[in-house]
């Protein structure tokens, strides 16, 4: 839920990276953290297990600076992808302004993508949010791997609403910023 503070002249927006386990949500945030100027980013928080699997969420605040007198910030969150952490996923979605759905392009992860997407719809509706009302960007990750589903098939199955999509190799940073930029712009458009 974006918060506009007219007194301290601040705008805060929340973008959540959603997707199945090991699809690259945390990798997206790590890449963003490593590449944005130091004054743009805050501290990155990762609540992860000892095996570096996200337990609760990752959090990265980004600041655009002053725009027409408003300090504009984006708070990026990831959800834990593993199926049994649904209670945590639901909590992170609370107050979401925009979603990046990171899909794993590998053939054997196709069903996991579908399941995660359905789970996202369910969790949004439990918050009283209709998926079509929330700005959404699709990211088809791991395009460099050998056995991947074609983009056309991913689009057909995962993106019926024709949200903007990007191909990505998050580990190398490809497509990460394209995805982020469009997500941020879509979110701000809902405020304008």
């Amino acid at each position: 839920m974006s918060l506009i503070n007219y007194s301290s002249r601040e705008i805060n927006c929340k973008i959540v990276y959603y997707g199945p386990g090991l699809c690259g949500k945390t990798t997206n945030l790590q890449h963003i953290y490593s590449r944005v100027p130091q004054e743009t980013r805050g501290k990155m928080i990762s609540l992860a297990t000892e095996m570096d699997r996200t337990l609760f969420f990752d959090f990265l605040p980004l600041e655009l600076g002053q725009i027409r007198g408003f300090r504009t910030r984006f708070h990026l969150y990831t959800v834990p992808g593993q199926v049994y952490y649904n209670a945590s996923r639901k909590l992170i979605l609370k107050g979401v302004d925009g979603i990046v759905f990171v899909a794993d392009s590998q053939i054997d992860r196709f069903d996991a993508n579908v399941e995660s997407l359905m789970n996202m719809h369910d969790n949004l509706s439990e918050h009283g949010l209709a998926t079509e009302k929330v700005p959404l960007v699709m990211q088809y990750n791991k395009r460099d791997l050998p056995r991947v589903v074609s983009v056309a098939d991913l689009e057909k199955e995962l993106n019926p609403s024709q949200a903007p999509y990007f191909e990505a190799v998050a580990l190398r940073g490809a497509g990460v910023f394209d995805t982020l930029k469009v997500a941020c712009k879509l979110v701000l458009k809902t405020l304008g």
């Binding site: 027409r68 712009k185 458009k189």
Partner: peptide, 16 residues
């Protein structure tokens, strides 16, 4: 105007 300025800021900050 806010959106236009925000868009250009996003383009300049969030890139490789």
């Amino acid at each position: 105007e806010f959106l236009a300025e925000a868009d250009s800021e996003i383009d300049s900050l969030f890139r490789e």
